[in-house]
C-alpha cells in the first residue's frame, strides 16, 4: 500500500506535467492559428459531448507541418542547429578530455579541489556566464583591448554577434557537463592496465588510444549527449552572442511564439525538434541505465 503511494506520487506528477504537456503540444501543432484566446482553433468543447469532440477532431490537420516544409527558413534552422551542435560537441570533447584526464591523473589530494573548481562554474548562473562573454568579445571589449595593446592586431576583431561567438559561448557554458562524466570514467581507470600495455610494448600514445579511450567510452558518450542534445534547442546563447547569420531552431521557436504569437506553428516546430532529438535522448537514457546497472 505504502509502496503504491511512493510509486504513484512522483509517477503521477511526471505524467501530468511532462507526458500530458507533450500530447497537448502535438494536438496544438495540428490546430490552426486564430485571433482568439487561446490563439488557436479548434478548441475542445466537452460541454457539447460527442458532437464537440467530433468537430474538434475534424478541425485538426497537418497544415502547419506542410507550412514548415515549404518555408526554407525552418529546415535551414534545423540543419544549422544540428551542425552547430555537432561541431561544438566535438570542440568541447577535445578541450574537456585533456582537462578531465589531467584531473584524473593529478595527485589524489588535489582532486577534490580540482573537482570543486569544475563544479563551481556549473553552479554559477548560465545566463551570467553567457553574458560575461558579451563584454569580452565586443568590439571595444576586453579581448580586443588586449590584442590591440600588444600589437597583435591593428583593427579590432568582429567576433560578437557572429557564429564564432556562439561556438565560444556554447563550449564555455557546456564544458563542465563534458568534464564531469569524463572525469568520473577516467578516475576509475586502473593505472596498472596502462603499465601492462606499456610493458607489452605499446607506446604511450597507442596505450592511450587502445586502453584509456575505450575504457572511458561511457563517459565520452554521456558527455557528448549532455552537450549535444540541449545545444540543438539552445536559445540563450544564440540570442545573446549570435547575430543575423546565426540560425538556430530554439531561437526560431521562441520568436514564433513570443513575437509572431503563432502558437500552432511554434508547437509544430517543437514536435519536429523532439522527433529529431528522440533518438539521441533514448540512446542517452540507455547509456545512463547501463551505467547505473554496472554500478549497482
Amino acid at each position: 500500500m505504502r509502496r503504491a503511494v511512493l510509486i504513484l506520487l512522483p509517477y503521477t506528477w511526471l505524467a501530468a506535467l511532462f507526458l500530458v504537456p507533450f500530447l497537448i503540444v502535438i494536438k496544438i501543432s495540428l490546430s490552426d492559428t486564430a485571433l482568439a484566446i487561446p490563439p488557436y482553433t479548434p478548441t475542445l468543447d466537452l460541454t457539447q459531448g460527442w458532437e464537440g469532440i467530433r468537430t474538434w477532431w475534424a478541425g485538426l490537420d497537418f497544415e502547419n507541418f506542410v507550412f514548415l516544409t515549404e518555408d526554407d527558413l525552418y529546415w535551414k534552422a534545423y540543419l544549422s542547429s544540428l551542425k552547430i551542435a555537432v561541431i561544438s560537441t566535438l570542440i568541447t570533447l577535445s578541450i574537456g578530455y585533456p582537462i578531465a584526464y589531467g584531473m584524473a591523473r593529478a595527485p589524489e589530494e588535489w582532486r577534490p579541489t580540482l573537482m570543486m573548481l569544475v563544479i563551481l562554474p556549473f553552479w554559477t548562473s548560465f545566463l551570467i556566464r553567457v553574458y560575461a562573454w558579451k563584454a569580452i568579445l565586443s568590439k571595444e571589449g576586453f579581448l580586443n583591448q588586449i590584442l590591440l595593446a600588444t600589437g597583435l592586431i591593428d583593427d579590432p576583431l568582429i567576433i560578437l554577434n557572429t557564429n564564432t561567438a556562439v561556438y565560444i559561448g556554447i563550449v564555455y557554458t557546456y564544458l563542465p557537463f563534458m568534464i564531469l562524466p569524463l572525469y568520473a570514467a577516467l578516475e576509475k581507470l586502473d593505472g596498472a592496465l596502462l603499465e601492462a600495455a606499456e610493458d607489452l610494448g605499446c607506446s604511450r600514445l597507442s596505450a592511450f588510444w587502445l586502453v584509456t579511450v575505450p575504457l572511458s567510452k561511457q563517459g565520452i558518450i554521456a558527455g557528448c549527449f549532455l552537450v549535444f542534445i540541449p545545444v540543438v534547442g539552445e536559445f540563450v546563447i544564440p540570442a545573446l552572442l549570435g547575430g543575423s547569420e546565426t540560425l538556430m531552431i530554439g531561437k526560431v521557436l521562441w520568436e514564433e511564439f513570443f513575437s509572431n504569437r503563432d502558437w500552432p506553428v511554434a508547437s509544430a516546430v517543437a514536435v519536429i525538434l523532439l522527433a529529431i532529438l528522440i533518438i539521441p535522448i533514448v540512446l542517452f537514457l540507455k547509456n545512463e541505465e547501463k551505467q547505473r546497472e554496472a554500478e549497482g
Binding site: L17, I24, V232, I281
Partner: peptide
Amino acid sequence: LFSGTLYAPLVMPDVILGLSLLLLFIS
C-alpha cells in the same frame, strides 16, 4: 517509462519544456 520520463528533462531543450508546460497551463 517511469525512469525514462524521470531522466528525460535532464537533456530536453528548455524551449520544448517551457512551451509544453505553458500549453498545459493554458488548456
